[in-house]
Amino acid sequence: MQKFSTVPLSDYSILSCQLDELKFDSKCVINTVNQYSYVIAEKDKEFKDALSNSDILLPDGVGIVAAVKFLNKQDIKKIAGADVHSYFLNKLNAVNGSCFYLGSSEVTLAKIKEKMSREFPNIRVGTYSPPFKSSFSKEDTDKMVEVVNQFRPDVLFVGMTAPKQEVWTHLNKDRLEVGAICAIGAVFDFYAETISRPSKFWIDLGLEWFIRLVKEPRRMAKRYVVYGPAFVWMLLRSKLNQSLLKGAQA
């Protein structure tokens, strides 16, 4: 598989190039990391393994961008799941490609297909809504792999919320007959417009997180109010360790 330029962040290699370098002609697993998933992964080995073994790990959040700057003095740009979704749809539409949406509800998937037929008429689209449960049985997983492989998409979009989607993809990637595999969670609802994403104005200001917090305080409060400070503490600890290591080597 093609190698991409990355920057280190703890145990992860974060993509530092632009989306236009990404391809879907060979299998690769694309995940995203933000401050919330970064903190959660420190307590969840399966999740951390899934993220650290990504072929491509996108910096999905101003927190990750700031962390790379703080620890490594390198500038990178935020690339959200919605960005990679849009990028691949435009690429696929231009070449009469195919994609498959695995996850979410039948209602959301129907809205996605209807919108795709208008905006990207050249793309062949498949969908499957798996059972809504905290963990999947072997039979559940076998069915999911079967329906995806029958379709054989160029790009598989997985939307089952983190960390379930990343762990499932990591455990089953070798069984899937697909090109790129993108775990993009909330993008299913953003694209279907069952949940509205903040406008480009707020995204460009780096305040998408704040608008989501205002709109969905009950769901987002813990993510930003609790895990935000935990993320900052981890960065300060990493910076201290860096300084101590440099001092020992001097």
Rank of each mutant, 00 (worst) to 15 (best):
Q2E: 13
K3I: 11
L9R: 02
L15G: 04
Q18T: 12
L19A: 05
E21F: 07
K23V: 13
I30P: 03
T32L: 14
Y36V: 14
Y38K: 12
V39Y: 02
K43E: 13
F47Q: 08
F47C: 03
K48E: 11
D49Y: 04
L51G: 10
S54I: 08
I56G: 08
P59R: 11
P59I: 00
G63T: 01
I64G: 04
A66P: 03
K73Q: 15
G81T: 09
F88M: 12
N90M: 02
N90S: 11
L92E: 06
S98M: 07
C99G: 04
E106W: 03
E106M: 05
T108N: 08
K113D: 04
R118S: 15
P121W: 08
I123A: 04
G126V: 04
P130Y: 00
F132R: 13
S134G: 04
F136W: 13
D140L: 01
D140G: 06
T141N: 09
V147N: 01
Q150C: 06
F151D: 10
P153T: 09
F157M: 04
V158S: 10
H170S: 10
K173Q: 15
D174H: 11
L176P: 08
A180G: 07
A186G: 11
F188I: 07
F190V: 07
E193W: 01
E193V: 03
R197Y: 02
P198H: 12
L205E: 12
L205K: 15
E208D: 02
W209F: 03
W209Q: 12
V214F: 05
K215A: 10
A221Y: 13
A230D: 06
V232H: 04
W233I: 15
L240F: 01
G247T: 07
